[in-house]
């Protein structure tokens, strides 16, 4: 994984954004930006090229699922890997996210090890898919 990659963290709780940001820093990723819901995230994504999106699901304004769908529907953004980190753990929700094209799904509360494992998995799959 490229340690300089640009990562957008989307969560309505600033504490959770901070926790994810700190965990990413622990993993060597310092190039992070934050947004507090899908509505603020989308223009940021369109304006700058991001390599990875970590998003919550349940947010006011625009949910993580809608953000994911918007990313997949936008030709310029559609290839961006999206990792969902959420407290939503119902089977139907997870299936919805998978069908919408999520790259990874982590349920809160989670650990740094889980985050690393899922990120490595996502980039490994992307590389093997691109090869």
């Amino acid at each position: 994984m490229n340690k300089d990659m640009k990562i957008l963290i989307v969560d309505d709780f600033s504490t959770m954004r901070r926790i994810i940001k700190n965990l990413l820093r622990e993993l060597g990723f310092n190039n992070t930006t934050e947004a507090d819901d899908g509505q603020t995230a989308l223009p940021i994504l369109k304006k700058n090229k991001f390599d990875f999106v970590v998003t919550d699901w349940n947010m006011p304004g625009m949910t993580g699922l809608d953000l994911l769908k918007a990313i997949r529907a936008d030709a310029a953004l559609s290839a961006t890997p999206v990792l969902m980190v959420t407290a939503e753990r119902k089977r139907e929700n997870i299936v919805d996210a998978a069908q919408a094209g999520v790259n990874g799904y982590i349920v809160k509360p989670f650990t740094a090890a889980t985050l690393r494992e899922k990120m490595e998995g996502i980039f490994k799959r992307l590389e093997s898919g691109a090869a």
Binding site: R89, K90, R91, E92, I94, V95, A98, Y105, I106, V107, F110, T114
Partner: peptide, 13 residues
Amino acid sequence: STMASQDEVDELL
């Protein structure tokens, strides 16, 4: 239909 753990989520995925 609530998944009890990350492992269950992984299994479903």
